[in-house]
Design a protein around this nucleic acid. Structure first.
Lengths: 333, 333
DNA sequence: GGAATCGTCGTAAGCGCTTACAGGGGCGGG
DNA sequence: CCCGCCCCTGTAAGCGCTTACGACGATTCC
């Protein structure tokens, strides 16, 4: 089913059909109706490939995330998708499993699709991409990695702040032995969170002791890390998780071991994903405005194209501590 | 950056470059290297649109789900994506929010993309789609809705069985007052689950009483439904949820009200999503082999294309009860 | 009444790729 | 030494669409 067949059926030229379908140019009302009628009868669906090849533009955005199973990334995707949908854009996601090689492949694939804009929300990084993307001439939003460059805007969350609040808060509750649970993808932003953790600890709590464990980014990974942590003999009074997703598993492991949260040990997450308030106990965490991040990404990619072109930008977001039930005073030694 | 520029740079024709890039035809090793070299220097990325327009085929699959935030759908997507990735295919998702109108739009969009195959994993339905898809000549997999037709394979999960097991199990534990929590998208498969619930109840338990509540498909929705349920005065000893995602909220609401699970009331879910074993208490649920569904979808879409062409098929899956901690004997009256 | 104007539409040239098909060297065999 | 064949490569015709550009009849204006 092609444009030409529709044109033939409606007794007009392909140009006219195209005009009708794109609401471009002027078409007499009666011919418009004929064309639409023909489209319906023939169950015509325009070929998007031909369309964006000819038009040189596409109404689809690309988004690359590290782990789409993690609600944090998923939420950002949904948020972007939602705004995009309202503006008649589509967005295709790809995930990298935290592997730089897959990141590169995903970016290439997106460039191949000639997306109208690309949001890269990942933890891992591949330095060469910056140049490649910058040279590609399509607007790009990075989350947390890479500095801004031509066409590239960077949205950065100040993890230090969030981590600092968390540590201070736990410290004020009397916690002195803390542990950090992270995941394997030990690249920048994670190091960043861990570093922030250590920095703050060093600054505020001279006598504090810590340890850390890593596993995969999933509840099961969190559980495994917690297991490993507790098996090591170190007995933390508080466990800080790199994100809520893993914290789920940590909570589970603690319960399994008969440790009460927050009675015996306090637990904190990061991200404030939706289910973190449905855990038991509800998770104390650090909120990151995912909805806004998605919206901002859209604005930058689509609308900012003209508005702030070439205005190399970096957007900073301050996360905030959300205290719920999983944290409490440190147990008496 | 086009094929032609690469060709010029490498001093060959576009046909040769194309051959190199697609590993098609024979090319002398030295020219192959020259071409690849040119590609690298020019940071060339083939235009996928042009490619699939010219080639008439694309290596991308489409997938439409009702609610991608629900881990059930997400898992199937990830599973499909994973196999697809191994075979060098990509898959683009779209979600409908349970709205038939969005389903139609999504299907059209996928047809417009000329996907190589389409998996429609949704609860809602729009009858006209069957014909439209069947006529489109691309392989399609439906989950749970629609009967098989030309090019269309249907994967059906026998909810009745799962529901039956669940009800029987609860009945054997002494439960007589049960409630059902569902969501708004009251279309076929959901009705199916509710119907299965009622059927079984009617058959096995003459004296059983029930009620049901619906809300949106999310933990928050589950919580709201539970709230509404308990506010109604009906005091169930068991709550069966249409899926695990909503069960999360039900558990939370019960805890909030000081009701112990399973001491005061038992709770069951459906789907066996990953986090259902990380809830507190761990959720008794019905497993649906999501991984296999994704894999089957791929086989049908890509490999079955030739193997079982035109062999109208329906695949049946029997779900199985997974007993965990959220169910127990009914409290003494 | 003829020219200028406007609204409506058709013509045709690509967009960047794939792919028959043909062509042109190099080689071996007759 | 010439023919045939095999390797390798180039030529060019599309794939289905968008979009300048121009054509054409119907108004309108002087």
């Amino acid at each position: 089913m092609t444009l030409e067949e529709v044109a033939r059926r409606a007794g007009v030229s392909t140009a006219t059909v195209s005009r009708v379908l794109n609401n471009a140019g002027v078409v007499k009302e009666s011919t418009r109706r004929k064309v639409l009628e023909a489209c319906r009868e023939l169950r015509y669906h325009p070929n998007l490939h031909a369309r964006s090849l000819a038009g040189g533009k596409s109404r689809t955005l690309g988004m690359i995330v590290s782990n789409i199973q993690n609600p944090f990334f998923l939420d950002i995707f949904c948020s972007l998708e939602s705004v995009a949908f309202q503006h008649n854009y589509e967005v295709v996601v790809e995930h990298t499993d935290y592997r730089p090689s897959r990141l590169v492949a995903a970016v290439r694939s997106m460039l191949g699709r000639r997306v109208a804009g690309l949001a890269v929300i990942v933890s891992e990084m591949e330095p060469s991409l910056i140049d490649e993307l910058s040279a590609s001439n399509i607007p790009v939003v990075f989350y947390d990695v890479g500095h801004p460059a031509r066409n590239i805007t960077n949205i950065r969350v100040r993890y230090e702040k969030g981590m600092q609040r968390t540590v201070e808060y736990l410290y004020s509750l009397g916690h002195r032995r803390m542990a950090f649970v992270g995941h394997h993808a030990g690249l920048d932003p994670l190091h960043e969170r861990l570093r922030a953790f250590l920095d703050t600890m060093g600054r505020y709590c001279g006598e504090v002791r810590y340890t850390s464990a890593v596993s995969s980014d999933s509840p099961a990974g969190g559980r495994q890390a917690a297991h490993q942590l507790l098996a090591s003999g170190f007995e933390p009074t508080a466990i800080l998780c790199v994100n809520d997703f893993m914290a789920l598993g940590v909570l589970r492991e603690l319960r399994e071991r008969g440790l009460s949260v927050p009675g015996d040990v306090s637990v904190t997450g990061f991200d404030n994903i939706g289910i973190s308030e449905f855990t038991c106990p509800a998770l104390t965490t650090v909120n990151i405005p995912r909805r806004r991040i998605g919206e901002m990404a859209f604005e930058i990619l689509v609308q900012g194209q003209t508005a702030t072109a070439n205005a190399d930008r970096e957007i900073l977001i301050d996360p905030e501590l959300v205290v719920r039930e999983s944290t409490g005073p440190a147990p008496e030694a």
